[in-house]
Write a protein that binds this DNA or RNA. Structure first.
Lengths: 361, 361
DNA sequence: ACGTCTGCTGCAATCGATTGCAGCCGTTAT
DNA sequence: ATAACGGCTGCAATCGATTGCAGCAGACGT
């Protein structure tokens, strides 16, 4: 009767009964084979197989004080960059027998805090998070770390002390874009910077600007636009830029989400890339090579970002003694040159307002 | 000393001590407020807050015989369609206080079986799976369902009895593509069908072909190519088609992954779309409107697919009495007309082999 | 032949939250 | 005044796997 309520529930004890041993022995046969006579072990495995036994991870984790689980908090799995990070995490996790709990914070600090709490409740072995700006979360993260939870940040830095971060060399990546444009002769630039309150945005802007300045070229702040990191944000920013007189000859877009919006604006404005405007953007995507013209981009190693973060957590769990010390891992970026930039025209007297020719269908 | 090992671990008992009650009362204050005096409850909540208490979900789930968790098995989170499904699942789950465990099967039946087992071990409340072909998995799924685990299939059908499936109206979607092309006057067609051993591929092909036949047009099987559901697969299939003489005037590509490969082949072959070839593909993507020309596609409600599947599981858990009966939910598709098709030329004497002009950069 | 050691197994406590049952106290009806 | 009742709380068992400790058998040495 009692058994009937959960027909599928097979416990170690059931396996033990069938194999004629005690539950302890079953446990040992499964987790520490060397402690059990081969013959006994064989009988137990056979019984387990016959009954379709699967160990109850909840009970195991409860006893072991920690589950083989990694919590992943990202802003939005629909953004290909995040999906790649997630894949990297999941691959490494599953390779080591860990499960991945996926949480979409939607860039909302309150959701992020809630998830942090939820994951703690699940006794996860570690948390990988892409932190939003905000001191409340930073403090929460610090508290978690102090209480012994392993936390690794990806893509951004919250500023919390004692946390390891894995991210791209945003400075270097943006600088390589700047250098490339400079080498083509460009001297006037616009930047669609996106959300500069998060570290990645800040770093990319600083990298781009710094590289220019090292070459004695200054970036006019009126041509640097902040906006939400979304296609819509990019679209609006681009529209605003294109509506102004004296458009610079080159544009740097700080991520691919915004870039897709920029392309829409480009199309609507009837601008010719790279004829009238050279463009480089951060992030490689499936479609960067498919659009017209193929885009020159700064590629991040998104998969490796996630993979590395997960590896740090798993390794710190395996050798459980050593307390992880915090550090920052930077993964290099790579400039992929395609066809969205061309040499700056020697010296147009002064940049004429872009012509208003009708959209080229 | 013992306490010192896990400094962050606060238990109900600790909260109870601080509030001057027993652990049972703490439990009730948290989960069944009406059973506790308001004043007591207030003291308990205060103590919990002060100590930073978070309930141990593992212990709770162990006792309750089931966790508020949904397992999601998909082939690859990098495919935008799957990411959207995942987002739909995660959104609904988190709305109801469920966590989502993400598993990438990589389309590998053995991985899929392994994950099924892992998820059972986690005592998940339900499993959402995108099943690969194969009888072994079908049987495993049937066994799971018999043993009381809630399983919902998305996007595809494994054939397992007793399972609810949520998928797109592939037949209707493909038919709408066919009808549209027919209405433009096309009479000769090629299809890049992808993997026709999985139900979605099979259904789309059947829908396309069926629609043609109802109009008295037949589909020449030599112009129907199977291939892996990947960009590379689409690329190779397209190359093969383009190398043959007598290319039909319209092409149907059965998903977006393959479509991105097809575009590459189109570019390399120097084909003009829609001038020399009209194209429709299944799946809406971020980039469908960005490429040249913007693609006419059959859009699926991917997010809703995941959302609906998760809802079925959550609802069946809430009213735990009722055993879910299996059913099939079909979500409609929508044809989005852009610019990748044009009217068929009245009557070219006979389709000339495509010209081999050099690649237009 | 006896003691000792090694290797395997079982017993029982444990992880933290939940819940049936019983006890306690104050209130109300008779 | 006493009985009955209802509301709130605590006790202790429970979920399933793990593990320190002890027991037991067989091997080996002397």
């Amino acid at each position: 009767m009692k058994r009937g309520t959960q027909p599928g529930m097979v416990r170690q004890e059931d396996v033990a009964a069938r194999a004629g041993v005690s539950a302890s022995t079953v446990s040992r046969a499964l987790t520490r084979p060397e402690m059990v006579t081969p013959e006994t072990r064989r009988r137990i495995l056979e019984a387990a197989e016959a009954l379709g036994y699967a160990p109850n991870q909840l009970a195991r984790s409860l006893r072991k004080q920690g589950s083989r689980t990694i919590g992943l908090i990202i802003s939005d799995i629909l953004v290909p960059f995040h999906a790649e990070v997630a894949k990297g995490v999941e691959d490494l996790a599953s390779e080591h027998g860990f499960a991945t709990i996926l949480c979409n914070s939607g860039e909302d600090p309150r959701e992020e805090m809630r998830y942090l709490e939820v994951l703690r409740g699940f006794q996860v072995g570690g948390i990988i998070i892409e932190p939003t700006r905000g001191t409340a979360q930073r403090q929460r993260i610090e508290a978690l770390v102090r209480s012994g939870t392993r936390v690794v940040e990806v893509d951004r830095i919250s500023g919390a002390r004692g946390v390891t971060s894995v991210l791209s060399d945003n400075l270097g990546g943006a600088a390589s874009a700047a250098e490339y444009l400079l080498s083509l002769g460009h001297r006037s630039f616009a930047v669609i910077a996106g959300d500069t309150s998060i570290t990645s945005g800040k770093e990319r802007l600083a990298g781009f600007q710094g590289s220019l300045e090292r070459q004695g070229v200054s970036l006019d702040p009126r041509w640097v636009l902040s906006c939400p990191n979304t296609p819509e944000g990019g679209y609006r920013a681009a529209r605003e830029l294109f509506a102004r007189p004296g458009l610079p000859s080159a544009l740097f877009v700080q991520n691919a989400q915004m870039m897709s919006g920029v392309l829409r604006a480009v199309r609507e404005a009837g601008l010719e890339i790279p004829l009238e405007l050279s463009v480089v953007c951060f992030d490689e995507t499936q479609w960067a090579a498919l659009v017209n013209p193929p885009l020159t981009v700064v590629a991040q190693q998104a998969y490796e970002l996630g993979h590395t973060a997960a590896k740090i957590i798993v390794e710190s769990m395996e050798r459980r003694g050593a307390r992880q010390k915090s550090r920052v891992v930077r993964l290099p970026t790579r400039l992929i040159v395609r066809e969205s930039c061309r040499e700056a025209q020697p010296s147009r007297p002064d940049a004429p307002a872009i012509s208003g020719h009708s959209r080229a269908r």
